[in-house]
Amino acid sequence: MAIIEMESLTKVYKKEFSRKKVCALNSLSLKIDEGEVFGFLGPNGAGKSTTIKMLLDLIRPTSGKVTIGGKKPSHMSVKKMIGYLPENPYFYDHLSARELLIFGGRSCNMDSDTIKERSRELLDELDLTAAMKRPLRSYSKGMVQRAGLALSLIHNPSILIFDEPMSGLDPMGRKKVFDLILKLKEEGKTIFFSSHILHDIERLCDRAAILINGNLNRLLDVKEELSQGETLEDVFMEEVNKTGGLRE
């Protein structure tokens, strides 16, 4: 059963001064099933982050519609279902990871004991226990990314939306995040994530969409469609070449 549905989703931005229109996403229709791990790939400026922001009601579609669990993304019950990790997350400088998680839990109406327990579990799992009282501004990029992951998971959401979750991580950090996504997949969570690391998408995802210049170029079943020897990178490059290059 589809939990996320996008129907002819289009986003056109107007440039601030020239008022020139730029179509960031063109009539995207997609259905993501419950419990599915869905990879969203494409070069920079393909419309991946635009799509994710529409799923979170950070921006609104110019036309078309998006529903999550049959409701609009702005609905509070939908927001409770979602855990989101933005690309290059930036949190409050003077807060600690523990305070960040307390905020995350309280904003979802969780009780103090559950927040405490869940925070301990997540900080432990993401190797942040030793640094949990330190201000976030003293964290390395990878640590900030992991704190963001912990925040996205604090309320045990059923849908996870990650925008470039591996970006800026060292090999150890990447492995940690990879294992976490794998664990979440086993728990039956719906995971929608964008990434430039094709190998990770190939290993983690059930299905993937290749987006180029705001258009959905290909939707593929990762396990079934990748024939012997062919990699996702080959498919991706083939799609990019078919479009005749990237838009500026």
């Binding site: 950070l58 702005s74 509070m76 933005p86 997350p89 930036y90 949190f91 904003s107």
Partner: peptide, 14 residues
Amino acid sequence: DKRTIYMVISRPLS
């Protein structure tokens, strides 16, 4: 400016 707002308004807060 720093887009910290993504983290806040993606939570169940209007």
